[in-house]
């Protein structure tokens, strides 16, 4: 299946902003996080298609996964 991965803030350093990835069915968010060399502790917010998701969420065809470190403002 094809999905889109978007990275934000410090996660972009040495990586990318947006990338398409071809993955076997059944891949969850955690697998992608680890494949990017990120740790679970570094993850602030995980969104799939603009909705908050857990790391064990299993991705579906053409999902967009967005990963953020813990950030804030206001």
């Amino acid at each position: 299946m094809l999905i889109t991965v978007k990275l934000f803030a410090t996660f972009r350093n040495g990586r990318f902003k947006v990338a398409g990835q071809a993955l076997p069915p059944g891949t969850d968010c955690r697998t992608i996080v680890l494949s990017l060399g990120l740790t679970e502790e570094e993850i602030g917010v995980v969104m799939v298609n603009g909705r908050h998701a857990a790391l064990d969420y299993v991705l579906q065809e053409s999902d967009t996964l967005s990963l953020f470190p813990l950030v804030g403002g206001g």
Binding site: F8, V45, G50, F68, V71, G72, G73, G74
Partner: peptide, 8 residues
Amino acid sequence: VLVNILNE
């Protein structure tokens, strides 16, 4: 930093 996260 909020622009992108609110946009998403």
